[in-house]
Write a protein that binds this DNA or RNA. Sequence first.
DNA 1: TTCGATACGCACCAAAAGGAGAGTGTCGCA
DNA 2: TGCGACACTCTCCTTTTGGTGCGTATCGAA
Lengths: 138, 138
Amino acid sequence: MHAIREAMATMHKRSEAIPPVSKAVESLVRQVIAQVADKWTMLVLEALEEHGTLRFTEVGRTVGGISQKMLTKTLREMERDGLVIRTVHPVIPPHVDYTLTELGRELSAAFCGVWTWAETYHAEVSAARRAFREREEG
Amino acid sequence: MHAIREAMATMHKRSEAIPPVSKAVESLVRQVIAQVADKWTMLVLEALEEHGTLRFTEVGRTVGGISQKMLTKTLREMERDGLVIRTVHPVIPPHVDYTLTELGRELSAAFCGVWTWAETYHAEVSAARRAFREREEG
DNA sequence: TTCGATACGCACCAAAAGGAGAGTGTCGCA
DNA sequence: TGCGACACTCTCCTTTTGGTGCGTATCGAA
């Protein structure tokens, strides 16, 4: 009855058995990946990589289609993870600058391959999707 | 009153003004990126890249910590986008194999840099997070 | 003979993602 | 005098993500 749950539970044991070292490190890497492999993070990374320093609304304009809520959240998380530096100029009306850190620039470079992949193969993805839909319907 | 909304609305116009070509392509690329830049997709990609062909529960075991529901969903989406091939052997008990397509292998290679980044810098991300927390509290 | 494994689909629920709209406080421009 | 820009925050709402548990058909092993 609980066959699946037990099968799923064993996977931890197996993955322990194959690589006996670096268990906590892999968990950390996954955690970092999970937060970094995010649509908005990738887009903001790109925007700041291309334009250097941007203000809050400029980031929004460059990314395009993001709400202020998500923009604030994404930038805060990126600041927390050491990907961007947030500089507040204590003036009114407010002026806040965002720039990539070295860490952020490295990550942006790492994502470069994924952008290239998407630009190269997006037509094939679309084709695969059409074929899948037709197979489902027909 | 509607200053922000109008400012956000202008971003589409600006991004049109800067790159006058390839508007639909960029939209497509983003759409593809948004679906591919996903935690589970990345993990399944990795699992299949390393082990070649895997059965449903084997993928689950290799990825680790994923529920069958999310595994099913992720694998279906990857099949739809042409990243994996799903082979059903009509036997009972059921037997289904998953393998990466060439497209999937290319994407996996593209994500390689991100994995390297995470392995190289996860300690720095942790440090940045600690520093941020202390600054917030202190 | 009964249990466990296989690869799911379905129903129910909680949490997170994400959007829309309002409000804030002051400055500079019309 | 009054509106717009700035960089947010807060609330309300919907959608998506994700988890848990149940059921299924049959085969091989205990």
